[in-house]
């Protein structure tokens, strides 16, 4: 069980010098062996929440409790070693580091062709074409997102934080992607997403709006609610 207790996160606005709340008093629980999907409009604080869970941003106040242990003070590395694994919304590029090297750093050991294939085919990439490529500007946006997900799979862990993993992935690969999430079902999976198909796979949907969750419920029932709220910037794949 992963719990957020009264988490707030605020930054100081550069121009006005005023305090700006990004997250305000958020309390949430993520059960083991469940897929939770966080959704909500742009700028509502979803990525901020993910970064706080990974230890990249420190909350201004509040606690993060994992299996009964307060982990608020743990560094990124410590959380990674405890089984927290993140796939970033905007994957970073490296000059010179190859896909192979990144996957090896992720799983902490040398990988042979089979190992490489396992990680990359899960995200629909053929290892042979990619392992020697640098994770740099020469990869397309979708390729980079797939490789980001592959590093998360290669690393493994108990808590997966996937920030818009479907963004930039072509529609035709969508079902394969959903299979990847379903395979993680034994773990604690938190996905930020705007896609109906991913909401449908969720055990729990959390709707964020203006710095906090405003509604939590089961997949289908939440979907009903959401489609009745045109104020949300809602994308529906099936209608396109």
């Amino acid at each position: 069980m992963l719990e957020l207790k009264n988490i707030s996160y605020s930054v100081k606005d550069e121009a006005s010098g005023k305090k700006q709340d990004i997250l305000k008093n958020v309390s949430l629980a993520f059960e083991d062996r469940a897929i939770s999907v966080i959704t909500g409009p742009n700028g509502s604080g979803k990525s901020t929440l993910i970064r706080i869970l990974m230890g990249i941003s420190k909350p201004t106040s509040g606690k993060i409790v994992f299996n009964g242990e307060d982990i608020t003070g743990l560094s990124i590395t410590e959380r990674a070693q405890k089984g927290f694994t993140i796939a970033f919304q905007q994957p970073v590029r490296f000059k010179g580091i190859t896909v192979k090297k990144l996957l090896e750093l992720a799983c902490g050991k040398k990988l042979d062709m089979n190992g490489m294939c396992d990680c990359l085919s899960a995200v629909g990439l053929c290892a042979r074409n990619y392992i020697d490529r640098a994770v740099d500007g020469t990869l397309s946006g979708g390729e980079l997102k797939r490789i980001e997900l592959a590093t998360a799979i290669a690393k493994g862990g108990d808590v997966f934080l996937l920030d818009e993993p479907e963004a930039g992935i072509d529609l035709w690969s969508f079902e394969d992607l959903v299979k990847v999430f379903e395979k993680l079902h034994e773990k604690t999976v938190i996905i930020v997403s705007h896609q109906q198909r991913i909401l449908e796979t969720a055990d729990k949907v959390i709707l964020f709006e203006n710095d906090k969750p405003v509604s939590i419920g089961r997949g289908e029932e939440m979907f009903q609610k959401l489609t009745q709220r045109p104020s949300l910037c809602w994308r529906n794949v099936k209608e396109n």
Binding site: T77, V92, L105
Partner: peptide, 15 residues
């Protein structure tokens, strides 16, 4: 770039 270090630390590496 700080983001590069963050990514690698999130894979379990020290700074």
């Amino acid at each position: 770039a700080g983001e590069q270090l963050l990514k690698l630390m999130s894979l379990g590496l020290s700074e």
